[in-house]
Amino acid sequence: MFGISPIGWVHTLGSLPAIPLAVYMFARHGRIVPRSAAGVAYLVFMLIGAATVFLVAREPVSYVIGAATIALLIAGYAIGRLSGLGRAGRYLETIFLSLTAFLLMLPTVTEILRRVPDGHPLVTDLKSPLLLGAQAGLLVLLVVGLTAQIIHLRRQGRLAALSSRAVSAG
């Protein structure tokens, strides 16, 4: 079905749960929260998908996306444990992990459009206007989402600063 090999199914089904986990964390917290149960599950499923891409990739760019995803996951999950970065660490963590969600969705949308419906896919050419438009839409969503996340983090930082001033003055 859909021309997917057995290892391709491991790759697809292994990474698929990361999508609703990311959506849940974006909706609930405005970002991917690495030190939460959903965040740990997201890491596991993303690592399954990113590691197995090297076994199923047909396009050279897939290797780059897989390697970038692994690097961003490691950086995103590790940076919060580094002391001395202050608020910059939270910003970097948010940016890195949001980029992993983008790198998950980019090939997901591409593969769906290239495989569905089975036997008569919506897209047969990587330069298809439908595919390029979907990919551009994801890029716009990334830019708007990151902007909103950074604004939200700045507001949280300001509120925390005001709150600590009020407590120390009181």
Rank of each mutant, 00 (worst) to 15 (best):
G89T: 03
V144K: 07
V144E: 05
V64W: 06
R81M: 05
L132P: 12
V53N: 07
L92M: 10
L162Q: 05
A134L: 10
V23F: 15
H120Y: 10
P17R: 00
V143T: 03
S98T: 15
P34W: 05
L103Y: 13
P6I: 00
A41L: 15
A71S: 08
P107D: 05
G39N: 09
L162K: 02
S164V: 06
V144P: 05
Y24V: 12
P17I: 02
F54C: 00
S128D: 15
A57H: 10
R28M: 13
I32P: 04
V33L: 15
R155K: 14
G80M: 05
F45I: 04
L141M: 15
A38R: 01
A51H: 02
L138I: 01
L122Q: 01
R158T: 14
Y91E: 03
R81Q: 11
A18D: 09
F45H: 11
A161N: 04
A38Q: 13
I74Y: 07
P6F: 03
H152P: 00
L142G: 02
T69M: 12
A101H: 07
L126I: 15
G145P: 06
A161C: 04
S5L: 15
Q149R: 03
L130W: 13
L106F: 12
A67M: 03
R115N: 03
T124N: 11
L47V: 13
V53W: 10
T52G: 08
F45Q: 03
I65H: 09
P121D: 04
A37C: 00
S5Q: 08
L142R: 07
Y63P: 08
L146C: 02
A134M: 11
I4Q: 02
L92N: 07
R35N: 14
I32C: 12
R87Y: 09
P121Y: 07
L97I: 05
M1P: 14
G80L: 07
S163H: 13
Q135T: 11
R114W: 11
V140M: 04
P34G: 03
F96K: 10
T69N: 01
I7F: 08
R165H: 09
S168F: 01
V10D: 00
H152N: 09
L142S: 01
E111C: 00
I48L: 08
Y42H: 05
L162V: 06
Q156H: 07
S164L: 11
S83H: 14
A160E: 13
V23K: 04
V143M: 08
G76I: 09
F45Y: 02
L55P: 02
T12W: 07
P34L: 06
T52P: 10
A27H: 03
A166I: 09
L146G: 07
S164G: 00
H29W: 06
T147M: 00
F96I: 03
H120N: 14
T12S: 12
L104V: 11
L47A: 11
R114E: 15
L85C: 09
L132D: 09
G39C: 10
Q135F: 08
V10R: 05
A41D: 06
G157Q: 07
V53E: 14
R28A: 15
V123L: 13
V53P: 05
L130I: 14
S168R: 08
T108E: 02
G49E: 08
M1V: 11
